[in-house]
Design a protein around this nucleic acid. Structure first.
Lengths: 136, 136
DNA sequence: CTTCATGCAAATAATTTGCAGTAAG
DNA sequence: CTTACTGCAAATTATTTGCATGAAG
């Protein structure tokens, strides 16, 4: 994936095999936690160390290349930073789906009610996804 | 606080000093993390151990007496379970405010768009609270 | 070449567990 | 009394750091 090289270069970060592997792995897997990520990368790069993984996650977050996703009852996960979206967490199959929805009305209601000026939001919906509910 | 004794009894949990202290502390302090909670309780009960704290937090969560609050860039916090609400996290003063807002329209939009049946939601808004924005 | 990133091992922090003693009901 | 809960210490697990080596540009 050439795009990750560009993204890294833009932040003056070297495009090491390890970093590219981390980014590609998160990209193809979607929301992923440290442990799973580590095991997946080990398969390609048996020498990968956890210290490197932690350091890179930290740096990639700092440069807003990654984003943390804190889901209820779950270990912290990570994803490639993208356009703001809502997380739909299926309590049946465990999958996380992203959805892009207009939230402006809600934000305006909140401002109206409380005077709180919102700059960003983090939203997780728990429930049953379409696939699971149609299987019942 | 007599009400916590009742709540504990309803779940067949004994009303120990430690448990009552944990609940009262979280109740008066609001959203609080393990470390802060531990230090506050130590002042009243110098013998309180962290093992007990962790065990109790775990059990109180399991009985839905407490609720976990995972805020971006912050350590996990806990609060007394209450009516569903939205968290407003002020990036200036760091305070977390709770607000009760009608989210039904948003939930319906999501269902309409994706077929995802929502049972509960977790929402954090980042921004500047009324108090801070009026100080500028 | 020069600088930044990696791997390893060791250090630190966070959380869990086993067990004997203690307190709640 | 009986059972569940606590405190302590030890065990795990998670994360960070120092430093010598190696790779990227």
């Amino acid at each position: 994936m050439e795009r990750f090289r560009d993204i890294l270069k833009a932040s003056n970060l070297k495009s090491t095999h390890q970093r590219l592997a981390i980014l590609e792995c998160i990209d193809t897997h979607g929301h992923i936690d440290i442990e799973t990520l580590f095991e997946l990368i080990l398969q390609k790069y048996p020498t990968m160390s956890k210290a490197t993984l932690y350091r890179n996650i930290h740096d990639l977050l700092a440069f807003y290349i990654l984003e943390e996703v804190k889901l209820p009852q779950q270990k912290q996960k990570y994803e490639i930073k993208k356009v703001p979206h809502i997380h739909l967490l299926c309590s049946h199959c465990g999958n996380v789906e992203d959805i892009f929805v207009e939230t402006k009305p809600l934000l305006e209601t909140i401002f109206f009610q409380s005077g709180f000026e919102i700059s960003s939001s983090f939203i997780v919906m728990n429930g049953i996804c379409k696939r699971c509910s149609s299987k019942k």
